[in-house]
Simulated assay, not measured.
Amino acid sequence: MSFDEETVVAQVRRLSLRELRVWVREGWVRPAQSARGPVFDNVDIARIRLLCDLRKDMSLPADALPVILPLLDRLHQTRRELKSLSEAVEKQPEEVRQTVVATFRNIHGDTQDRDG
């Protein structure tokens, strides 16, 4: 589903059109472009809500966002990759799954011993 700027502002009530345009210009939100202007999808809306939380609820300064947003993006990418890896392991024969889990526990245990 796609939304224009006015629809986004109507959906995210704590957002002004001016703020939305600034966030797009800064690259914090990256909507698709159409002949009629920017087009936002559900992922864009979720990111806009996150930005509202960070800026308005947590009072995070604008100059911190270029640091925070790439870290959050990387965290979400890592979660997607781990989910895919988990699905791949689940498709393996039971013996392979058990070996992978045991190896993970050995490695993870070693890491916890060093860190903690």
Rank of each mutant, 00 (worst) to 15 (best):
E81L: 13
R25M: 10
S2T: 14
L54C: 00
N42G: 15
C52H: 02
D110Y: 01
E94I: 07
T7W: 09
E6W: 04
P70W: 02
R55T: 00
L15Y: 04
D110I: 00
Q77C: 09
A62L: 14
E90Q: 07
P31I: 12
S16A: 05
H76F: 13
M1E: 12
G116I: 03
F104T: 01
Q33D: 09
M58N: 05
V24P: 00
V8D: 06
L20G: 09
F104C: 07
D4I: 12
R80K: 14
L72G: 00
L17W: 01
S84Q: 11
N42E: 12
V29Q: 13
L60A: 12
G37N: 01
Q77F: 05
D41S: 03
E5R: 13
A32C: 07
L54T: 02
D57P: 07
E94Q: 08
V100M: 06
E95L: 05
W28P: 06
R21P: 04
E95N: 08
I68E: 04
A32P: 02
M1Y: 11
R18L: 04
A64I: 07
L69E: 07
F104L: 07
A46Q: 15
T7Y: 13
Q92Y: 00
A32T: 11
E6F: 09
V9A: 13
R30I: 09
R55A: 07
S86M: 03
A62N: 01
R13I: 04
M1C: 11
P31V: 12
S16I: 08
R80C: 11
R80A: 15
V89R: 01
R18I: 06
Q33Y: 05
T7R: 15
R47W: 14
S16G: 12
L15I: 02
L17E: 13
K83D: 10
P38W: 15
Q33V: 12
R21E: 14
S34T: 12
P38Y: 15
R25E: 14
H108T: 00
V100H: 08
R49M: 12
Q11F: 13
R105E: 14
L60T: 15
D115E: 14
D113Y: 14
E81M: 11
D44T: 13
E6H: 14
R36D: 08
K91H: 08
P61S: 06
R21C: 10
